[in-house]
Every structure is written in structure tokens, then in C-alpha cells.
Write a protein that binds this DNA or RNA. Structure first.
Length: 505
RNA sequence: GCGGGCGUAGUUCAAUGGUAGAACGUCAGCCUUCCAAGCUGAACACGUGGGUUCGAUUCCCAUCGCCCGCUCCA
């Protein structure tokens, strides 16, 4: 068998996803909607498989901790819309709604409150500078502009204090001409809506930009209703919404996406140990669903890209995947962040509810636990699975096949009567009805066998069971393996066992 | 958000100021005892809205969407 290593083009992957029913543009018949995508019949199976595997790995069969005992994790499913105070406490309302101004000439964007302007009654041109600019730099630029370079002639005023009418006089920090700055625009990445039919400021609410806060909001409820003790985790899978400035790269950065997040609560002294522990576990997870180690990368965040909550602690480490559109670089799949006690502390302050934990294992020490957060993108995970599985093979009729692991494949097997004649079909139907009780399987009767194998290759079905004349004689079927196209015969009674065995891989 | 490119069947493409063709897929029938995506047939498209014009899929404008680069990315 010949295989060609061809650079994978996202266009081909997107086309296959649509053609075979993995992923469609949202509201396709109306021309789509930027940043939104729908999962088709096969896409939803694939997504559910990844989702269920995560839930199992976290909630049903969580790993053994460093002491050899299974760690404690429970699941929740919180509302997408919560009391808006949640997002004030989390920092999403205050910190990320800073008005920005653009420079029409240089295309640079500045936070409005970061610019100071040298104003003067006598001047008709007012140079603007970044607030951290040195006096010497300002004098230099004034000279360049042919203006008096004596700073005492000017009054430094923050851009937020100046009316829009004055913008015509302002010279942007990186240009020489006045009037290039646009009026400030609000940038808030949270979707807003209203709870209740009245569209007023009082009932404004937000669609959650991350599932994590729903977990922090329920931290006390979980402690009071279950028997978890420190350290423990709360896991959640669900949709989140961000008004991305620029959705890009298929479903990689979309405005509606799905997260799989677990908040691990522990004593502050153990944060480092647990962050390393979860980083290892999460890496194993992505490998186990079929992401080859060649395309996976682990990377600690640089300090300047850390989220507001992670600045104080041990930072964030990413698990990244080499997508076709990021190659040779990588795109984030999951971040394992040390959120310190930022969230619980902030909710304690804003809500007035005590978040302290009284730890009997530590001489009744009271503390607000630190949080290690493995936060993975389910949507991104699905994309990574598809990209990883996409294999060009010009030697086979389909020209391409999806090399999903059996456990992730949306269809585990296809049952194919060799001919559509009377003898083969009833046996196939019987096998199909039996198998579908346990596995998502396809029954495909029409057209020649080669065509049907090709079809299954393209959707990544790992096994095809073919019923022929020998089946009638000796009750055996042909198993055809997707990757090798090799065939073997097994007894009809062995088929479910065969599949069950393969699913473990 | 900025700049550039592109929007014709499900997909990949073609042609044209006088309303469109192919390949593959899909569906139906035939054929087929294991990959020849076979044979025959059928259905299906000019992203949307304006403008110019006797007439626009074609030219112009806007809008929406997609791709690339920059920007952004809790």
C-alpha cells in the first residue's frame, strides 16, 4: 500500500466535514453566521464520544492520586446565565470592557485610558502618548513635529477626560498627523441579554464566557451536600460564549463553544504538586483519545500572557496541538492553570458568603483553598481529533480516510451484506439489530462493496462486517479493518465481543 | 477591527450581458461473492439586497459569509 504525505489543507477538511455530516455552518441556508457552527449527525457522535470519555476520566473513574487512593471529583451542570454579579466578581465585567481607540493611519489599537494627551489652549495639534512614555520621549516627538518642546507649556490629560470633539486635534502615538484616532469603542467579550421580557439595564444578564464560574458558585453547595473533603474537584461540561473580535479557523475560535473544566480545590501548599499531577494526567488523556505525541506540545505560558487570576501563582501550562492552520506552530487545547484563591476570595467579598474551609486533617486550619484548573476545549478537541484522523491515501478509492481510534469513531462498524440479494440481507439486518444495542453501527445495503467500504473509510468507521455465501454455510463474516484494509473471518457469535475488545483501544 | 483574495449543484471546478455545464457525491434501478466508489437514469446551483440595462449569474455598490495576512484572544 502506498501512502503519500501531503500537507493537509483545512479546505479539504472543512469540505469533508460538510459533505459527510460532521460540521455545518450555522444557519447555512441564510448564509451562515460568523463564529457559529452546527454539529451534524456524525459530528455530534464524535463530540459525545470525547465528552463522555472526559466525564469518565474525571468523574466516573478519576485517577489515583499520589498517595495511591482515587481522587475525589464530582460533577455539576450549572446554568449558562447566572446573577450578573458573578461576572463582576470574576473580573469579566470590570476588566474586559475597556474602551479602545483605533488609529486609522497605523491600524494600531490603544486602550483609551492608557493614553495621555498634551493639551494646550494655544496649540491646534495635541500629541498623544502612552501613559508610560518618558518626558524625554515626549520632548523628542514635539521637536520632530516642529512644536515647542517645553512640556510645561502643555497640560497632560488622560484621553478618557477629553470630549470626542477634541479628537480631531489629537496626534496618535505612532503617527504625525492629527485626527487619526477613532472614537472609543466598547470591547466586552461577553454576550448580553435580558432576563425577563423587559429590556432594561436592571435585568441585563450575561451568557457565561467560561463554565468555571458556575463551579465556584456551587463550591459551598457541593461541600454541604456531598461528602467530599479537601482536596477534591468539581467538573463541568457545557457551552460558553465569547464575542470574539475575530472568529477564525473553522471551529477553533468560535463565539459559541463547549468547555470541559474541572476545578481542583486544595491546600495552598499543595498547589504545585497538584498542578504537575493534573498536567501529567491531562496529557495522558489527549494521547489516549488518539492525538499522536508528535502533534502534541506542552508549553508554560509566558508571564505577559497570563490571565488576571493566574498572575500571582504558578501560572498556566498549556497542552497544545499542531493544527494545519497553526503549523508549524501550535494551538491551545487545554490550559492547566493555578487560579490561586482568586475566584473564591472574590466571590466571598462580593457575596459576603464565607468560602473558608475548616480542615480537620490540618488541625482545623481555616483557609480558602487554592484552585488548579484543567480547562479543555471540547470543540477544539473535536477539531484536533478530525485533523489528526484525516489521512490522505491515494491508493484507496476514497483517496482519504479518517483514522479515528475505535473508541472515538462516530460509527464503530458497518454491517454490509455482500449483495443486496435475499440471502444476505436478513442476516445483516439481524446482526445490525443486535449490535446497535451496544454500539453505534451502520447498515449499508446499496451499491457494490467497494463503494461502501470507501464510504465508511471517509467517515472513519474502523470495522466493516460483510455477510456472504460462506456466512450461510458456516456462520462466519468477514471483518475488514479500515487502516490496513486487511480481512479476516470470524464467527457471527464473536462479532460483539470482537468490537467490545477493540473499543478498549 | 484593518488590508488582500474569493462566493456558480452536497463537494471541487467551468462557461456566459440574452437565466448555466462537468466530475465526484446523493437518490432510484441494474449489475456485482469482498474495495472497479461499475452501468443507466434522476434530483439539485449562480450567497443576499440594491443599482446600471430592454435584459445581470456576468458590470457597479452595499451587505453577509469563507480564506490569507495583521490585530485581538480571561
Amino acid at each position: 500500500m502506498r501512502r503519500f504525505v501531503v500537507p493537509v489543507d483545512m479546505k479539504d477538511i472543512v469540505a469533508l466535514c460538510k459533505r459527510r455530516g460532521f460540521i455545518f455552518p450555522a444557519s447555512d441556508i441564510y448564509g451562515g453566521l460568523n463564529g457559529f457552527w452546527d454539529f451534524g449527525p456524525l459530528g455530534v457522535e464524535l463530540k459525545n464520544n470525547l465528552r463522555d470519555r472526559w466525564w469518565k476520566a474525571m468523574v466516573i473513574t478519576p485517577p489515583l492520586g499520589p498517595d495511591g487512593a482515587p481522587v475525589d471529583i464530582v460533577g455539576i451542570d450549572s446554568a449558562i446565565i447566572q446573577n450578573p454579579k458573578t461576572w463582576v466578581a470574576s473580573g469579566h465585567v470590570g476588566g474586559f470592557s475597556d474602551p479602545m481607540v483605533d488609529c486609522k493611519e497605523t491600524k494600531k489599537r490603544y486602550r483609551q485610558d492608557h493614553l495621555i494627551v498634551l493639551t494646550s489652549e494655544k496649540a491646534d495639534r495635541w500629541p498623544a502618548f502612552h501613559e508610560e512614555s518618558e518626558n524625554a520621549d515626549m520632548e523628542k516627538k514635539l521637536k520632530k513635529l516642529g512644536m515647542p518642546s517645553d512640556l510645561s507649556l502643555f497640560e497632560k490629560i488622560n484621553l478618557t477626560k477629553l470630549p470626542i470633539e477634541d479628537y480631531a486635534k489629537i496626534i496618535g502615538p505612532d503617527t504625525k498627523e492629527p485626527g487619526t484616532l477613532t472614537e472609543p469603542k466598547e470591547f466586552n467579550l461577553m454576550f448580553e441579554t435580558h432576563a425577563g421580557p423587559i429590556q432594561s439595564e436592571e435585568n441585563k444578564v450575561y451568557l457565561r464566557p467560561e463554565t468555571a464560574q458556575g463551579i465556584f458558585l456551587n463550591y459551598k453547595n457541593v461541600l454541604d451536600s456531598t461528602r467530599v473533603k479537601m482536596p477534591f474537584g468539581i467538573a463541568q461540561i457545557g457551552k460558553a460564549y465569547r464575542n470574539e473580535v475575530n472568529p477564525r479557523n473553522f471551529i477553533f475560535r468560535s463565539r459559541e463553544f463547549e468547555q470541559m473544566e474541572m476545578e481542583w480545590f486544595c491546600h495552598p501548599d499543595e498547589a504545585k504538586m497538584w498542578q504537575e499531577f493534573w498536567f501529567e494526567e491531562r496529557t495522558k488523556f489527549w494521547k489516549s483519545v488518539g492525538l499522536g505525541s508528535d502533534n502534541l506540545a506542552m508549553r508554560p505560558h509566558d508571564s505577559d500572557e497570563l490571565a488576571h487570576y493566574a498572575k500571582q501563582g504558578l501560572g498556566t501550562s498549556d497542552i497544545e496541538y499542531k493544527f494545519p492552520f497553526t503549523a508549524p506552530g501550535y494551538g491551545e487545547l487545554e490550559g492547566i492553570a493555578h487560579r490561586c484563591d482568586f475566584d473564591l476570595k472574590s466571590h466571598q467579598e462580593h457575596s459576603g458568603v464565607k468560602m473558608e474551609y475548616l480542615d480537620p486533617a490540618r488541625d482545623n486550619e481555616r483557609y480558602i483553598p487554592h484552585v488548579i484548573e484543567p480547562a479543555a476545549g471540547l470543540t477544539r478537541g473535536v477539531l484536533a481529533l478530525i485533523c489528526e484522523a484525516y489521512t490522505v491515501d491515494e491508493s484507496r478509492p476514497s483517496g482519504v480516510y479518517l483514522n479515528f481510534t475505535p473508541a472515538m469513531a462516530p460509527k464503530k462498524a458497518a454491517i454490509l451484506p455482500l449483495t443486496a440479494k435475499e440471502e444476505h440481507v436478513p442476516i445483516a439486518q439481524k446482526l445490525y439489530l443486535e449490535l446497535r444495542e451496544e454500539f453505534p453501527v451502520d447498515l449499508d445495503i446499496k451499491q457494490n462493496i467497494g463503494k461502501r467500504y470507501a464510504r465508511q473509510d471517509e467517515i472513519g468507521t474502523p470495522y466493516c462486517f460483510t455477510i456472504d455465501n460462506d456466512t450461510i454455510e458456516d456462520q462466519t463474516v468477514t471483518v475488514r479493518e479500515r487502516n490496513t484494509m486487511a480481512q479476516e473471518r470470524i464467527h457471527l457469535d464473536k462479532v460483539s465481543n470482537y468490537l467490545r475488545e477493540k473499543m478498549k483501544g
